[in-house]
Structures are given as C-alpha cells and as structure tokens.
Design a binder for these strands. Structure first.
Lengths: 235, 235
DNA sequence: CTAAGTTAGTTGATATTTACAACTAAGGCC
DNA sequence: GGCCTTAGTTGTAAATATCAACTAACTTAG
C-alpha cells in the first residue's frame, strides 16, 4: 500500500500550521519603513510582529491570503507583492509544527490610508536600520524581515522595482533619489538616465512638469502593462 | 477576543495540506535532466510527478523534509539544495486546500546511485526540453518544474551555481562547457576564465591534470568553505 | 528687467572593460 | 620529428562606463 509520491494524507491533527506573513515597506521621511503590528494574544503577546495570519479555507491562494492580510491589517490594496520564501520547522511556534509563506510588499507613501485598517491602534511604521528594526520581533520575524530587506536591496541593483515606492507620477530625479536611498550611494545622473531609457518602461506625462524655484522637471509614469524589468547591467 | 497577528488557531480539520516537492536536476548525456517518480495512488495515479511528500511531525524543518524526500526517492544525499518558492491554493489538490514548498536540487551525475533509493522502479530521469519534460505531470508540477528550470538558467548567468553539476574535480574547459550547455550559447574563453578567477572560489588540485591526446588540463576543486558566489557582471 | 541661485537635462573627454582573434604550450599519435 | 588537438595566454579594436563640465529653465532679490 505504498504511495511513492506523497505517502498517505496525514491525519488532521498531524498537519502543520500554515500562515502567511507580509513585510510591507514604504519610503517615509527619507527612510525605508516597515509596518509592524503589536500582538494582543500569546504566543509573544505584546511583541511587535509582521502582519500575518493563518491560511483560511476561504482563501483562494497563498497570494490571495497575503492580500487579505494586507487589507485587514493595513487597509492596503493591490501594492507590489512578491513571494519571499517559506520558513518552517517544528520549533518556531510553540503551538506546534508551523510554516509561514513570507511575502514582500512595496507601497508608495501617498497610497497609505490615514487609518491603517481595522487595527490601526496596534499597527505602526518602523524605520529600517541596517537590516532590522528597533523592537524585538515575535517568532522568527526578525530573520524574515532581514531577508525581505536583503531581497529588496539586491533587486534595486538590477531592476525597476523602486518605482513601486513612488507615486503614480514622478520625475527622474525623484526616481534617482529613491535608488540612491536604497543603495546608500550616489549614482551618476547620465548613466542612471541611460539605464532607465534603455529598458523603456516609462512614458512622459505630456504637458506636466513639476515646478519649483528652478528648472521644472518632466513628469513620468510607468507604461500601462509594466512589470518589473531587469537591466542588462547593474544600475 | 481578537488576535491581530494571526487570528485563532484553525481547527485541525481546517488546516491545509502541506508538502515539499523537489526538482532534482543533473547533467547526463549532455542534457539537463530531472528526476520524476510515477504516482502509484490517486490523485493522478499513473502520472509522473516531482518527488515530494507531506510534511511529517518528525521533520525538523522544511529543508529537512526536502532532504528526506530526496533520500527516500532517489537515494541522494547532501546535494546543492535551494528553496524555489511555494505554491498553494484551494484547487491544486482534490483532497483539499493544499500548499507545497518547492525546492531545486542539483547533483553531479557521478554522485547518482546506480539504484535510485527504495522506489527505483518508479523513478527515472527525463531530459528537459525547453522548459518542460515529455510526460504530462501530476498536479501543478509542470509549472513548478518550469520555474525551477528558469531559476537555474537565470542563476547560471551570474553565479557559480553550475559547479554543483560537476564532479568534485574538474577542469576549466569542463566548467565552461556546463555553462555553455545551460545557457545554450558559446562563451569567450578568456572572458570566462577572467570571471572565474575574479570570484576566486576554486583551487587547483596540485599535480593533477587530465590527460588526453593533447595538452592536459589543470584540475580544480571548489574551495572548502564555498557557497554559490555572484559575479560582478554576467558570465 | 536683470543677475544670481538652483535644479534639470545633455554632452564630451578619458579611462576601463569587453569582444574577438591570434598566439604559445603541451600532450598523444603516426 | 612533424602533425593534430585542446589548454591556456596575450594583444588589439570596439564598446561602455566614469567624471565633470556644459546648457536650459525656472524663481527670487534687487
């Protein structure tokens, strides 16, 4: 009666717990920040944690569950969402064998709701310092957060991902500043613009420019069908 | 009684099924091949599938479960193993809400056991054509396999990952041939050697050379503490 | 109304890297 | 010993990156 592929279906009581946890990042006050929620119940009651939750029978998919969590905990809809990886072992949750599917989400600060979903009081934004955040996090969330930061920083080097941290319309100097903040180094203006032009994912917002007490800058938006594109070289 | 972080622990019967599935790749007969097992039991009885299995209470971690599956199904121990991603939704398995954590494994063909573990008769190697394999696979395994191939091909461009498809000792022309096979294009010899030298992850096996009816080539091995390294540029 | 200050956007000169091919090296084979 | 083959290195032209200077377009001060 052997079943080479998977073995028999495990009894319900032997099934591990399965959750999703989301690292939501935004740029506020010139720093990268993550949304954390304070846990009300044990385990780790009182500790800050990544917004997350158990997979429920009415979720349509893992990504759907991540979107549900994002909407419940932060009132945030349809940001950039990418799967980071899964973390699971017998010990990470005292309630039993537990696995979590971690996601990274990016959102422009102008798209944040004034009130963060239904649990606004328990949620707040924390600046990222290095690869972590000031408070001690619940479970293995510090490790997950560090991996999320690492993923984002790595992708900044060779993709257009940072556009998701900007409003719908932005200037090229805006975009360059975001790259520079995330990479923590200065970029050459002409080389930067050449890369952006090469991958051809932006279109000018005709007639609109951002005025200040200097030469106004052209406004751009991402082309309608845009997905994150990769540069031939690093930025 | 609200629990902002995760909600109440779901009743055992509401917990999704959780599996690991592994795409094991090797280079045999000058082609990239994946190990598949034939399913004996429903669902999808008779179909070929990625080796996989349910997470069991005695597994120590997700990666541990992937290693167990690899050992059970293919008699393969400690190859290169990397998490690919997770796939889960309400419909992918008729038995209920199901998620799988997918892994990619690479192994040198000289490390394959003559008999593939305990279910040798039900397991066999299939050449990769494009991004898939000849038989129709069970569940969503075709999609997972395609993602695994894509991941490996992408990483070949900018990492030392292909060393894991070679025996412990190999020559630089051997290594270049592996890169060329995976990338499906010719590489420049001097540029290739420059990249390899830059990242400095190989050491010569002193005194040993591979003889043929021509100039013998230096044998190399990866340095003891080696992990996959990234090139500054593409290979 | 003009000059100064500031940031946007472009251009060009120089240094570095890449691509390509030719070259030398070292073995077996006849 | 000459020839064939593959290993490994070197050199040169073309492409690309780097760096800084330049022009452009606005506001504000006087």
């Amino acid at each position: 009666m052997k079943q080479p592929q998977t073995g028999p279906v495990p009894a319900p009581a032997e099934r591990p717990l399965l959750t999703v946890d989301v690292t939501i990042l935004t740029l506020r006050d010139d720093s990268l920040q993550a949304l954390l929620v304070r846990r009300a119940e044990p385990p780790h009651a009182g500790r800050w944690a990544l917004p997350g939750g158990f997979i429920r029978p009415d979720d349509i998919s893992l990504e759907g569950a991540a979107r549900r969590v994002l909407l419940d905990k932060a009132g945030i809809e349809t940001p950039y969402l990418e799967q980071l990886g899964s973390y699971g072992d017998a010990k990470r949750d005292p309630r039993g064998w537990s696995a979590t599917v971690a996601y990274v989400a990016l959102i422009a600060s102008d798209r944040l709701e004034p009130r963060h979903g239904r649990n606004a009081d328990a949620a707040s934004w924390w600046p990222i310092v290095g690869t972590s955040v000031a408070p001690t996090l619940a479970f293995d969330h510090a490790r997950i957060l560090a991996a999320a930061i690492g993923r984002v920083r790595a992708k900044v080097e060779y993709t257009t991902l940072p556009v998701h941290l900007l409003p719908a319309k932005f200037t090229l100097p805006d975009l360059q500043r975001v790259y520079e903040q995330l990479l923590d180094r200065k970029l050459d203006k002409s080389a930067f613009r050449k890369r952006i032009a090469e991958v051809d994912f932006l279109e000018p917002v005709e007639g609109e420019r951002r005025a200040a007490s200097n030469r106004p800058a052209q406004l751009w938006r991402v082309k309608p069908d845009h997905r994150t594109v990769f540069f031939d070289r690093t930025i």
